[in-house]
Design a protein around this nucleic acid. Sequence first.
DNA 1: CGCCAATTATTTTTT
DNA 2: ATAATTGGCG
Length: 676
Amino acid sequence: MGIDLSTLNPPQREAVASTEGPLLVLAGAGSGKTRVITFRIAHLMERGVSATNILAVTFTNKAAAEMRERVAHLVGEKRARSLTVSTFHSFGLAVLKKELHRLGYPKQFAILDASDQASLVKRVLKECNDADRRFDVRRVISLVSRAKMAGGSLRSLAGGDPAYDAIAREVYDRYQRALFNMACVDFDDLIMLPAQIWKKFPEVLEAYQWQYRYLLIDEYQDTNASQFELVKLLAGERQNICAVGDDDQSIYGWRGAEVEHILRFEKQFRGVKEVRLEQNYRSTGHILSAANAVIALNKQRKAKRLWTDQGEGERISVVVAPTEEDEARFVADEVQRLLYERTCRADEMAILYRTNSQARPLEEALQLAGIRYDTHGGLKFFDRKEVKDVIAYLRLCHNLQDDVSLARIVNTPARGIGDTTMERLHAQARAEGMHLFSVMRRAAQNPELGSAAVESVGRFVALIEKYRALIDTEGWSKAARELVREVDMYAECRRHVDSSAAAARKVENLEGLLGGIERFEERNQGEGVAGYLARLALDSRDEEPDDDGKGVTLMTLHSAKGLEWPVVFLCGMEEDLLPHSGMQGEVANPDEERRLAYVGITRARRKLFLTRAASRFKNGQPRPRTPSRFLDDIPAPLTEAVNLSDPAARKPVNLQTGKDFFARMRAKMTEGEGEG
DNA sequence: CGCCAATTATTTTTT
DNA sequence: ATAATTGGCG
């Protein structure tokens, strides 16, 4: 007993203590949001609410794990364990595991990841429109996904390019049917289908409403229509919902997120109480002023003004380098200097950027300087081709209807089943309404296939069936290892690669995968392949962090949301990059780009660098670059300019900054408060 | 018909 | 770096 609310400021305390009815907490960046959420949960439990009746939804699995941990710190490990803390997607999966059979799906189903989805849409596209393939697959996927995120309504497929709207409608139906026939769901289904089930079976919904009486949604500004519907259904008449978020940090519009949900919260629920957290505990005054100045220019928002009692702090360094290499070298030099002066540790610094492709030169510069760094996002372990291939084998063995996985590995390694044969099999499957594997079992009866093809297909069918059996008798981790050996994935790794070092890495990846599978099987006896595959799709956190967070962090602005560092470098402050512009040089959503800049600025606690290059390579040619419009929005007195083309201006600025900064950092670097 | 090597285009952001 | 595509060869 004894959640000490006296350490909270008045609005924070109000947010924690208002336990009944709809509550909107507008939590500015660095305003102690996570603390409020965890205290609120602990406070609820202290007042007698059972942990099993609380559902907290977060944006990432990492955030979920952290939140549970912090609640455990307050109420104890044991009580925290009965809490439900998860992402929308994991929660949806849990619901589907229990209820999806109600829509006629089999008990076991698989989750399609983004690239599986792409291959399926490609195939569907080929089937309906065919031939000239004038449609951009990515764009079609985005339209279909948008419709699903709008709760499965095709109404969103109007008003855009008519040709695309039309093809997307056609693809939508076929795609959904294909998913159903393959016993697969995609990411959007994890939200959309639970809502459908709840609407169709009120008694099921009631059971969930009965269980989850206290709802808490974090990062509410990033909910899409489908997620909103889910929440609204679950909240029911009771409307015991606490939404926490910051409209100024809504940066997932491209994923269907609608700021309107948070802006209009009070219209969507009855008797809403609103609390604003505006005191910032993270950043120094200059950084906050800059953030306020940038975000103030957005029209549609709940006006907030962050303030701090921490003093002005360092000025923001606005750095211009001749080229992107110079920019990267400056960042590396500066990091090295801060390390050398022992001003801060490597893990207290972050280098942020808009697009993953910007990471390259930065990584190279850091490597050259011998600085440890961790990249989050970008190329992930489970995206590696060889790893995905093994996963596809496992998925096919687990679910023979999974045509996407089958198509992926049917001829990897090459075994005499080429495009022509597959085309014929596909045609037959479509004609019969069967999945590929069942058609392949009867390949001998297909008059179109030559004898060589029939034999190859027969061998493949036998291979898969052998390993299906082996999974049952020997366990799936052993079967996986044996499969990798029998099909000789190691040779396959060597085949398509020039250097033996690259091949060795691939083999290492395979070993890592097999090791990971073994460990998972050991730890989760009951789960089986399905559990592993689901975890893989939903939680892409690396199984084993090789270098455990001791280096400088490199990540995109999107992944940086919710995190903070004493020193932040925000790179590529240029038009077309931040704000990012697409094909026709048009900025698709200027407001969102501005919020992105705001998120970046507010990640910094004590020192912020905004860097840009005067010239950057694009398509192999150096192109002159324009400074980001957001730089103009920051009042000059908050900044100090550093021009790397001008050697005279360079050193003194840094030295002066360093000395002053050093002293203040030392004094301030004691407490570490997380938040988002 | 399938295999392989060579060439070309493609990377916003992520559960 | 990786697909997807293409062309030549068996």
